[in-house]
Amino acid sequence: MQIGIPGALLYQYYISFWRPFFEELGFQVVISGNTNKELVNRGVKVSVPELCVPVKIFIGHVFELLDKGVDFVFIPRMEAIRRGEFFCPKFMGLPAIMKYGVPGVKGKLLTCQINARSDDISNYKHYLPLLDKLDLSIKELKKAAAFSGEKWKRFRTINKMGYMSCEANKMVVEGVSGKELLPKENNNHIKLGLLGYVYNIYDDFVNMGITGKLNQMGIDFITFDMYEEELLDQYVAQLSKPLFWTFTNKLLGAGYQMLQKKLVDGIIHITAFGCGPDAFLGRLLELESDRAKIPYMLIRIDEHTGENHLQTRVEAFIDMLKRRKSKIS
């Protein structure tokens, strides 16, 4: 039996768990390919126009999986991974949007509810609704969850050493355990904070390969997923009322840490058109960057963004940072 996992939204963060999980249970895992123009267009066609691009892209990936003839598409409902916090309402309603809004998904939807206490979502209890549909026993489920939970932890270890999620995921598949690795070091002059959700910074179609561009320019950058969760929480605690969305809080914590400790020369924040939580996050970071006197640039991407405009803006921003740095030192 084939189970499809869309290569969008939280894919880069949790694939090191989900893939081994289903493989361990004896299923064949099919993952949709890279995002491309045609795929995005298919998603755009069936979705409500105002939905954010990442969700439209997700729909495109689901279509691709359906084309490949998978038996089920795995779309968990991400409810919370912290006590008292949530995911964006669109994540919480994702299975409903898919079931009723996207033709062809209804009979093939494989869903469960993830309401965890920490980023680690490997507790088998979240996956109990899968038992009936996939005809499994609890014992098998427990074993698979424990096995792949280890894999995911390995991914996080590598990730936190300064490797991007996409690199870290690859290494886990190749069998790198993380113990033999050294933290990634860079001696570049300019250090950049690259803020954005995993589905924005690691999807080369939607951000037009910004990570590649930065690497080419020899710019070193850090992202939120390279941080320890506890450290991020410390910075989030500065707010008397934290934001409601876990990943938004993570970005906020990372941003605050970079700005307050003056770890970076500048911050680029990549957000998708129509992202609700980011509207508030952006304002908070803007205020903090004023205070820290560190430049902050917001890049908003959508299905129509032109590559040249992005290239120009990023280059100009980097040039400005370089000039600023030589002036200060």
Partner: peptide, 29 residues
């Protein structure tokens, strides 16, 4: 309101509901 997070979920389900319950629904942003 434009790009309201929860109501976007409602709006995505509305076409199906309109069909099932046979009632016209107009969404205004």
């Amino acid at each position: 309101p434009f790009a309201c997070l929860p109501e976007l979920v409602t709006e995505s389900i509305i076409p199906e509901m309109s069909r099932v319950y046979d009632i016209p629904i107009l969404t205004l942003s």
